[in-house]
Design a protein around this nucleic acid. Structure first.
Lengths: 230, 230
DNA sequence: CGTCAGTTTGACACGAATCAAAGTGAGTGG
DNA sequence: CCACTCACTTTGATTCGTGTCAAACTGACG
């Protein structure tokens, strides 16, 4: 089963029998609320978003970031209840599906069913890496890893060149992703900037030295796509 | 799509066209090595195992635990290369499948394809919760969460009553799961034991007060299984 | 011109890591 | 049957990384 292909948003987008509509959202919009039983499944067509969970006293943990091609709300579709919230980091466009069509999708479009599983496996791979980061990397290593990771993700969907190459997050987002306080996050990012590895702009980050970041984090980047063995 | 059913190992086990054989392993056996391109996909039929990643200087992070009904090696089957290792925590029995049959499984058994995606969504849910733990919970909260979590998982596959109700891990495993040093882990577990929330045995843990652990961690347990809406 | 979100910096406190050492119990070999 | 080893657990002393508190700075916006 090395013969996968990456999930193409357009693919689901034009399977008219599954598509319900398109949705545009502003920066900061809460797209999905923890505990909700959303009736919909979404594909992100453009923009950035993030998933997070909160504890009752306000502690927030960002779980992962969403870029074009990613699914939102699969958990709700499959398990029934969303266990995390989703918020827009930039203006974005979503493609909306009826979640109750999901089982017929598996029946009628096994290729798409496999693509969904492929996406879920990718997500699991990213979460594994984040866990390694939170559990065993120092603050500096975590920050370097996160920025290298986000740069890679942006590059993989063509956002790395030209205009959009800045990662649209605040230091508060970084802190809540890395499990650090915002003060310590600021001091850590400052060190990375002083070493010319990154540049911090108003509410975004520019990666100047990807290799340097990856070396600090001891991270090799996402695995090479395997060529089909047969 | 609220009408899911939990994945039954027996289900895959007796789909003879996919099954390759059965495999028995001792405690401590490395079942899958990070970086390998395993030709097989497994279902755990009995026993406990855990997934982990390591950094080159020996820092280890345990990602999650595997119990009967869980899949091993799906990542390898779908992405091509394993990005984590798997080790047995107890004697265990695996059911082995050829991974190259996976796409034909999606074609011919869409119901099983959906079950695999369901399992992947469950794994993602657990990893999300672990991330919240590592990022935003204190040492005490993390320990309480982990033990409550493992108790729940064991109970959900019928391991909670009688003989097998002890969780077969060492304090080193707990430390590597929670991202703590083994010394601090010991002191934290000691406090839980002094409060009669757990009892620590030779190389295992007995949960005495599940509610108490869940209250400390501020964790509600896995979501209720949704009844079908229609 | 004031407000507000975001960034920056310094002083201090605290939680967790590290260092060191001893206790326990199972297994092993003499 | 008794030393011996080895993995695991336990405890105390000290160090260090990160959190908390406090305050100032910046730029966008109304």
């Amino acid at each position: 089963m090395d013969t996968f292909r990456p999930f193409e948003p357009q693919e689901l987008r034009f399977v008219s029998s599954f598509k319900t509509g398109e949705l545009v959202a502003e920066t900061g919009t809460t797209l999905i609320q923890e505990g909700s039983h959303s009736a919909h499944l979404y594909t992100l067509l453009s923009g950035w978003a993030f998933r997070y969970k909160m504890l009752s006293d306000g502690r927030r943990q960002i779980l992962n970031y969403l870029l074009p091609g990613d699914l939102l709300g699969l958990q709700g579709s499959i398990i029934g209840e969303m266990e995390h919230s989703v918020e827009a980091l930039s203006p974005l466009v979503l493609c909306v599906f009826q979640r109750d069509r999901l089982n017929s999708l598996f029946e009628n479009q096994p290729g798409l069913g496999f693509d969904i599983t492929w996406l879920a496996a990718q997500e699991e791979r990213m979460l594994d890496e984040h866990l390694l980061s939170l559990g065993r990397r120092t603050a500096m290593e975590r920050a370097a890893y996160l920025l290298a990771f986000l740069y890679h993700r942006a590059a993989s969907v063509g956002l790395a060149a030209g205009r959009g190459r800045h990662i649209p997050i605040t230091q508060q987002h970084v802190a809540d992703t890395l499990g650090l306080s915002i003060v310590h996050t600021n001091k850590t990012l400052r060190k990375l900037a002083d070493r010319s590895l990154i540049r911090w702009l108003d509410r975004s980050c520019e990666v100047l030295d990807l290799e340097g970041l990856m070396a600090i984090a001891e991270w090799d980047g996402p695995p090479e796509r395997r060529r089909p063995l047969i």
